[in-house]
Amino acid sequence: MNAGEFAVDARDGRIGQVMGHEGGYVQLRPPGGGREWDCPPEALTPAPPGEVLRARVRRLNTEGRLP
């Protein structure tokens, strides 16, 4: 996977944007920002566009409720 692409971490189903590669792992960040996590490359699958959109909308809705 290349930087900027979205992928699904098959270990837990989280969607993330590929930020880079470090020590044999792929670094992912949630859509819309947040804390990065490391994922082994063999556990990644391309994220369907609809899932990326849903994740972004969920994040925006959550941010809209914060004081």
Rank of each mutant, 00 (worst) to 15 (best):
M1F: 08
N2R: 15
A3Q: 10
G4R: 09
G4P: 08
G4N: 08
F6Y: 15
F6I: 02
F6G: 00
A7R: 06
D9L: 00
A10Q: 15
A10W: 03
A10T: 15
A10S: 15
R11D: 11
D12Q: 09
D12F: 10
D12K: 07
G13C: 03
G13V: 05
G13K: 04
R14C: 05
R14A: 06
I15M: 02
Q17T: 01
Q17F: 00
V18L: 05
H21A: 13
H21P: 00
E22K: 09
G23S: 09
G23D: 11
G24L: 02
Y25S: 13
Y25H: 14
V26P: 01
L28V: 00
R29V: 05
P30H: 05
G32Y: 01
G32E: 04
G34V: 03
E36K: 07
W37P: 02
W37E: 04
D38I: 07
D38N: 13
C39M: 03
P40Q: 13
P41N: 10
L44H: 07
L44T: 10
P46Q: 01
A47V: 08
A47C: 08
P49L: 07
E51K: 09
V52E: 06
V52T: 07
L53C: 09
L53F: 14
L53G: 04
R54I: 12
R54N: 11
A55P: 03
R56F: 03
R58Y: 12
R59T: 00
L60A: 12
T62Q: 15
T62Y: 14
E63Y: 06
E63W: 09
G64T: 14
R65V: 09
R65N: 15
L66E: 12
P67K: 06
